[in-house]
Write a protein that binds this DNA or RNA. Structure first.
Lengths: 244, 244
DNA sequence: AAATATTTGTCCGTATGTATC
DNA sequence: TGATACATACGGACAAATATT
């Protein structure tokens, strides 16, 4: 059968080829009852069985990979992944994102309730190694802060600073074994990132102090101090002009 | 610069090229404030600006397309789509078919913290009309419950019942003007619903009572009673065997 | 420890279907 | 009708990462 003819046949079906392939592979995973860790056939094999080119197959595979359903590595193959709600919430929030001020307030309010609501779970799950990781993130923030203060600009851009901040809160909750919670918190960080590109350096300094206080409380294994430090962190961030 | 060198440079970043492109295009849509109907540059143009091959770009575009963010047509171009959560829930269901109880527990824990955390905002934002709507949802639940009790089966299927339940909680928070909160709660409801297809009728009865108690508190404009009723709602739901 | 095989990652080129003017 | 612009699909080649012997 010639190239032209096969093209013609496929066009009878309205759904595009790579989408059909996407569906077929997903159904294949269900039918074969593949579990996380199991492998798909190689790209070449699937091309042969499905009768499509490698490019089309890869478009489908990459969509599956970005959706978090599979993961592909050179020399290994394509491996089924454990369910991870990251993609779900990231895409959900992506569609909610607006540039209004209120959106930032909304996300912050949700973050505040979630993080404060899971304080106990966080506290109980943290290990010494995690507390050290938290401290090193604070040190990173501190270093950036000092450098920027030296340059003496009122406004300063801090993607690195925010990354450390995000990492800090990520560590706080990663051991709670609630992937839904972690995904939501991460997704919020992700969509805030595009907005908060510039902050005043004086807020940076106060932010560092707030996080250092959290670490101190954790080092003492004092839940009440931890709770107070976390509330302080969020409440002051709320009313951004209130004095120390 | 040779092919080999560029490859080498790119490998310094761990994230794969097509994923970077996926991220960049998504960020581009946000940054340019593109709305549904607007068009992306052509594939060729984007390849040039991003400095990647057509295959890599297409893998990213196809992932965006399957995710429902864009739609591409020959002779036209790549068009931004209105948000349609179908794909998200489809992948969600796909994952839940095989997944365990733990995910359900996680979602419930998050819902509990969020709803209880925004109690005050809910209470303050509710109007008389909303309270009437809440009551009518409870009446729907009640009616379904009575019908099922008459048929005297221990197990009964209740998609309608759950829809009323979801609607109830939706109404509670819709006036808080926090779309992020509402979206999360709705998304989580979808997760729950796919699992809990069958419930025992005695739980249905107790669920109706819990919701009626919430409405009663709201009718009296008594925040403390509302708070107690809501806590009761979630706590009993937690330990599903505890007596009334 | 080193060579080899396997598999994915990336690039290029070409032909075809489709919508618009 | 024809021309143009665009996405769709195919094939081949080599690089890079991993596993295996």
């Amino acid at each position: 059968m010639s190239y032209k003819q096969t093209i013609g046949m496929r066009n009878l079906k309205s759904r595009k080829l790579y989408m059909q392939v996407y569906d077929e592979i997903r159904d294949y995973i269900l039918q074969q009852r593949l579990s996380p860790g199991d492998k798909l056939p190689t790209e070449i094999e699937m091309c042969a069985t499905l009768g499509v080119s490698r490019n089309v197959l890869r478009e489908a595979i990459k969509a599956l990979e970005i959706a978090g359903i599979v993961s592909s590595k050179p020399g290994v193959g394509i491996v089924i992944q454990e369910f991870n709600p990251d993609f779900l919430f990231q895409t959900l929030f992506y569609n909610l994102t607006s540039d209004s001020e209120s959106f930032l307030e909304q996300t912050l309010a949700v973050r505040r309730i979630l993080e404060l609501g899971f304080l106990r779970e966080s506290f109980d799950s943290l290990k010494e190694a995690n507390i050290d990781q938290l401290e090193s993130q604070v040190n990173i923030m501190d270093k950036i802060c000092r450098e920027k203060l030296g340059s003496a600009n009122e406004f300063t851009f801090g993607p690195d600073f925010y990354q450390a901040d995000a990492c800090f809160h990520n560590i706080l909750y990663q051991n709670t074994n609630n992937t839904v919670l972690c995904s939501i918190i991460n997704a919020i960080w992700y969509c805030d990132r595009s907005h908060k590109k510039a902050i005043r350096s004086k807020y940076m300094e106060s932010t560092v102090n707030k996080h250092r206080r959290i670490v101190s409380a954790l080092k003492m294994h004092d839940f009440d101090a931890f709770s107070i430090a976390m509330h302080h962190h969020f409440n002051v961030e709320y009313k951004s002009e209130s004095p120390e």
